[in-house]
Amino acid sequence: MGDHDGEGPSERATDGGLKAYFLQERPMLLRLLTARLHSAEEAEDVLQEVWLRLSDMTSAPIAQPGGYLFRIANNIATDRRRSALSRRQREQDWMDVHGDAGATPGAETRLLAAERLRQVDTTIASLPDRTARIFRLYRYEAMPRRSIAELIGISVSAVEKHLQAAYRLLHGLSMQDDIGTAKGQGR
């Protein structure tokens, strides 16, 4: 499906421009949301929300409006997945024990989150120094890859390799042949 105007001549838009982009990308946005939420109905719902957000937006010009729109839609989908999953998790945990509702909403999820963050800290601490530093800058300081590259004095694609390695380890994958061999294309 790669036949759309990737980086159009003027990928920069104000809110009016964003709405035009929205209308143009609507079918693809809908596909994205349906695939993520497993529900055409909820996808339509999120699409509405994206549209409303665009209406509230100030008219500062935005680079890469296409990517921007998809990111908004995708982030809303992620939020919805999170609350759906934690709700289901809670119900499931409680059902396992009591076959009935009753565990305190939230508390258990928050504790599990705290435990996951502790695991992440341990994993990050076990990374090579440079990889750990890059990950922290990227994820906790929200520093763009280009800035990290400049700060550390390596290429942007090397920064990406480090991030890839860190994320792989966080998900229990081996990080072999990620660092150092900056050649092989990931996928």
Partner: peptide, 21 residues
């Protein structure tokens, strides 16, 4: 999935179309 997650943070609309596929 990890590669996509990293790529999309700075991806343009074409990237996103590929991702949907």
């Amino acid at each position: 999935a990890i590669d996509w997650h990293l790529a999309l943070a700075e991806g343009d609309s074409e990237r996103w179309h590929d991702f949907v596929d």
